[in-house]
Structures are given as structure tokens and as C-alpha cells.
Design a binder for these strands. Structure first.
Lengths: 217, 217
DNA sequence: CCACTATGTAATCATCGATTACATAGTGGG
DNA sequence: CCCACTATGTAATCGATGATTACATAGTGG
């Protein structure tokens, strides 16, 4: 946590930060503070983010026109991390069949959601800011979706699927994975959620059940 | 919208409301106002509910210790309506097989969620108030879940299912339906959501795909 | 070296949830 | 029948928040 230590906030030579003016990229610091706030389970408030950046309550509004804009930037950052992890997981399980890749995708998705619940919520809910449709977040997400569509198309081409309605399968798969993740976050898996790891095993089982259901016997 | 019209707020004879003291069940009026606020897509605030009840900003706190308590009451009311509709739908499709009843349940669930998005969100999210575990909402929900478990047990007893892991099937089914509903609410079904009714047909298709996946061929 | 702009501060506003002191309206016991 | 008592509502107030505005300061480039 690089906080300026000197009593006088800004020294003469600003440590050659490369970044622009006074603070040395306050924008980034605010986004990180907000992400950390979320991870701690706290509400994200502009003031609290400013407080953690040791900056006045009005300063953030030089970088974001309003709270929603900050939240959108936070969501985009979280989405970047999410996507990076998914793609890393996919590149680790190289060839295999398309259904195995589909499974790996779903598993990585679920794991990230379980382990970064607050960030997953920010990404997915669209309640935190006015999802202007065209944001980087939407584009990023669309590319992930396209990835799953390709896997399903490959599976169909290899005659692995019972049904030819790929769109339906794809929506169902998304709903299943998204729903499981959200059930966890929304507290709908209370009873057997006590033991850590059990939920991830159940997630895996649910995913396998789905794949078995769509695969040709 | 029964708002008192007289310039003097409270007349001598309070119109024989049967209900207790001054206002004539302010509690109920506040809950209804909050539900309507949600249905309009607005944030629920105690003050706005008070405003709509033509009452001072502090009055609601005579009936609810804090905002969360109001939200919890609102959620319980929404849950009552939800459950009533599910059970009505089930009683309309009487006998049939257990899987047909399972399907009817899922369809009623999805329909209600699509048509009452804000209320569904209040029920399900658990972000609106401090879900104290023991609320009526939790109990109500548990009973609905038990219903689906019974249907699956019946189906298994009649040898209709491919897998014997009923818990897994049940969680997967919940995740699928919950996930589809939430995808709709969270704006994850953009493209083909333009035409009304198309989404409900897709919901039906997804449900059928799932049932076909778990049913013995 | 000096305008110019990017960035941050200080002060201020409206709204909100919440608390407190006070007012009023029914109820029930003597 | 009246009078305490309690349930209910009001008014005033507090602290926190998002947001705006006027002002200060720090780098940049002609």
C-alpha cells in the first residue's frame, strides 16, 4: 500500500512517478481502494475511497464525474482480472475435447466467483452503476460468451451433443453457472456451506450433471 | 390510493377503520408504498415511503426499528405473494407426473420473477436487509424447496431419473432457474430480449432442456 | 518566464437514516 | 367520568453521503 509517508504531502521532486500531476495517478489509487473496500465487505463510498487515498472528499470528482463512473471503472478492473483468470485456466488445459474445455471454463468461472464474491457481484449485478451498454465490461463479457459458443459449436461438429439447439444449451449453461455463483453470494446455500471446499465440489458436481445432460450418451 | 383529503389530518371519528390508532395501520401503508417504490424501479427510502403515506419522516420508526426492518417486512410480503402464485399454479396442474409438476413449478417461478423483477430481487438478493436467518422469508423459502425435493423423490421412486443423486439435481435445478431469472434482472439477456414473450419462451426451453437432461431416456 | 490547464482543497447543499424531546389520541381502571 | 398510561405521530436535530462551486497550486509549453 504505497501511501506517502512524509508529513508534507507533496515533496519537490515527486519521486519520478512517470504518471502525470500532483498525486501520481489518483485515479488508479481510488479504483484500488474501492476494490479493497468491496473485498472487505464494506459499502463503496466515494468519500471512503478518498479517505484511503489521503485526499479531500472532492478530489475524486476530478477523475470521475460521479460515483457511478467510479463504480464502472471498478467493475472494468474486476472484469479484467476475472477474464485473465479464466483464460489462464483455459490455457492450462490445452487440447482435450470441446466439452472438457467447456467444463474447465465453467469451473474457473465458479472458482473465481466463490473466491472473489464481492468483485463478482460488482461485475455481474449491474446494480452498482448505470450499465451504459457500451462499456468495456460489456465487450469483455461478450468475448467470453463467444468463447463458450465456439466450444459448443465444436462439440456439435464432432457429434457430441444430444440437441442441436446450441443457443438454448448456451443460455442454460450460463444460467446454471451464474445461478450457482449467485446462490452462493446471495446466501442460498446455507446448510452444507459450512465446510470449506464442499461448495466447490458441489459446483463441480452440478457442472458435470449439466454436461452429462447435454452430451450424447 | 386512500389519502386523507381533509385539511385537518385527523377528523374526530376516524372513519371506523377498525385498525388501531391514529393513522389506521401505517405499517401496512408503508410496506405497500415501499413495494410500489420498488416496482417503479426507484430506490426504497424510509423517507420516501413516509412521504407517500403523508406522514412525518420519523413516523416509520415507530413501526420499524430501522430501515432494514422495513425492508425485511417488505421482503416477507413479496415472498408471500410469490409463494401464493407458485402454489396456485401447481394446484391448476393437478395430477400429471412428478416431472410435469417440477416443470410447472419452474415455469411459475420464472414467470413471476420476470413479471415482478424488483420484488423478486428483494426476495432473493439478501442485500437489502440483514437476512437474520430466522425470518419468515427463510422458512417460507425452505418450504418451497422441500416441495421440489418431494417432486424429485417421487420421480426417482418411479424410475424417471438418470441419476440417483437427488441433492445434486435439486441444486442444479435451482441454480438454473435462479440463474435465468437473475440474468434477466441483471441485464444479461440483452440482444433477443427486445420482443416481449420471447424471453419467457426461452425460459421454457431452458427448463425443458434441463428436464430432458435429467430424465431417463 | 509566464499564461494555461490539470489537479486538489475548502466550503457548502440536499438527502438520507437515525435519535430525541415533545404532542396527541385512544384505553382502561378507579 | 375522569385521569393516568401507552401507542402513535411530529419537530428538531445529528452525522454521513454524493455532488457542486469557488479557489489554490503545480506542472507544461509557447
Amino acid at each position: 500500500m504505497p501511501v506517502r509517508q512524509s508529513s508534507k504531502p507533496r515533496a519537490r521532486r515527486p519521486a519520478a512517478e512517470a504518471r502525470p500531476y500532483h498525486h501520481g495517478d489518483l485515479r488508479r489509487v481510488l479504483i484500488d481502494a474501492a476494490l479493497q473496500l468491496a473485498a472487505e465487505g464494506a459499502e463503496i463510498s466515494v468519500r471512503e475511497a478518498a479517505r484511503r487515498a489521503t485526499v479531500s472528499p472532492g478530489a475524486p470528482f476530478r477523475h470521475f464525474p460521479n460515483r457511478d463512473a467510479l463504480m464502472a471503472a471498478v467493475a472494468e478492473e474486476a472484469q479484467r482480472r476475472f477474464r485473465a483468470e479464466i483464460e489462464a485456466a483455459l490455457s492450462e488445459s490445452p487440447a482435450a475435447g470441446p466439452l472438457a474445455r467447456f467444463r474447465a471454463f465453467g469451473l474457473a468461472y465458479l472458482r473465481w466467483a466463490m473466491r472473489n464474491p464481492a468483485h463478482f457481484e460488482i461485475i455481474s449485478t449491474g446494480r452498482y452503476f448505470a450499465h451504459g451498454g457500451s462499456s468495456e465490461l460489456t465487450r469483455d463479457n461478450a468475448e467470453l460468451i463467444a468463447l463458450t459458443e465456439q466450444m459448443l459449436a465444436d462439440a456439435a461438429a464432432q457429434g457430441l451433443l444430444r440437441s442441436a439447439d446450441l443457443k438454448r444449451i448456451q443460455i442454460a449453461g450460463r444460467a446454471l453457472v451464474y445461478g450457482f455463483a449467485r446462490m452462493k453470494l446471495d446466501g442460498h446455500l446455507p446448510r452444507w456451506g459450512v465446510e470449506e471446499g464442499e461448495i466447490e465440489r458441489m459446483a463441480e458436481g452440478v457442472l458435470d450433471l449439466f454436461i452429462a445432460g447435454i452430451a450424447k450418451p
